[in-house]
Write a protein that binds this DNA or RNA. Structure first.
Lengths: 187, 187
DNA sequence: TCAAAATTGACCGCATTGGTCAATGTTAAT
DNA sequence: ATTAACATTGACCAATGCGGTCAATTTTGA
């Protein structure tokens, strides 16, 4: 599974090689095609699997937390934890947007907007925006916050070593970044 | 040139197809191989070209500007202007780090660290750090700033339409983001 | 007018592709 | 120990795409 994700992620649907997958996964070609009728089948299974993971993220988010920074810290933490089991899953999801192979793009599009756009609004739902200064451009503040989140997420991911517990350390680290931004965002 | 950059960027050296390049560039295969002996020749030419572009960026930066935000705004602007002529050049440069084809990786490594690491320190040279609050973690502030720069750069790039003049608008836009960050970074 | 330069695309041998399938190995219940 | 269902293997196939060639054609400029 991980081998296939990795290969599709790296090369896209058309150029991804089933030969590479079985080599990486150390199984035989016949075994792969015993469980999946063809390459497309395998791909669609993985897309579906990836969408399910996203749902799992939403399930584990604490939506009662109304502070934006804590909410986002929570989201990031859940993502990191999932990435431990399935290292390529979120990269795969972001790659999916750019996939434009005629053979699969329609199937991706069907669910993509639902899963993503809906989810993204859910993440920012019920946030206590009254904490923000009145004179700040909220959209721009949110941009900065998003970009910082992305950057921090990548940094955190690269710092995780095998067998590490994901959690406390990253959360405290994030909070120190959040603190800096709060100083200009919040009243 | 752009077609080749795009193809190498997308597929890496090994998997990049010269057929795709000539199709995209609307020239014949024979013409391509008239100017370059082989695929590797073309690749090395492009790598060299890309490194030259980087040098051009450094040449056009105003190193007398000591305010960090203005300096970075300047850097971003120069990058945007170059991206107008050569849309894939910076993506190509960042991809170069990850290229690990046996046939070319040694040639990349030779110059990479020199051009990049040296350049990066140059960008942050002679900055007036006394403007920063004493109680701020400068490293973390710089992280946020870098991530914001990257995010803003992508946003700005995607908003540029063909025939647009690159300049004033983006710079003013950047300044409004910078203003927000200054509020927590500066005294 | 004509030689030099530029451009073309059919063509080549070869590697890799997605997929098949008869043979073999493994499992667990009898 | 026997058996039958299931899992796994990798040599093999036709098809495709690869990097690269080159004789033939077109374009160029003096």
């Amino acid at each position: 599974m991980n081998a296939a994700l990795k290969e599709f992620l790296k090369n896209g649907f058309d150029k991804a090689s089933t030969n590479e997958m079985v080599k990486e996964a150390e199984i035989s070609k016949g075994s792969l095609f015993n469980y999946f009728q063809n390459k497309k089948d395998l791909y669609l299974y993985l897309v579906d699997y990836a969408y399910q993971i996203i749902d799992k993220v939403y399930e584990r988010i604490d939506f009662t937390e109304r502070d934006l920074f804590k909410r986002l810290g929570n989201v990031g933490l859940v993502k990191l934890q999932i990435q431990k089991q399935s290292p390529h899953i979120f990269d795969f999801l972001t790659y999916l947007i750019h996939e434009d192979s005629e053979e699969v793009k329609d199937v991706i599009d069907q669910k993509y907007n639902v899963v993503f756009k809906e989810g993204l609004t859910k993440i920012y739902e019920n946030i206590d925006y009254s904490k923000f200064r009145e004179d700040i451009d909220v959209q721009k503040a949110m941009d900065i916050l998003t970009w910082t989140m992305v950057g921090f997420g990548e940094k955190a991911r690269s710092e995780i070593k095998p067998f590490d517990e994901v959690g406390e350390k990253q959360l405290r680290d994030w909070e120190s970044y959040a603190e800096i931004l709060k100083r200009s965002f919040y009243k």
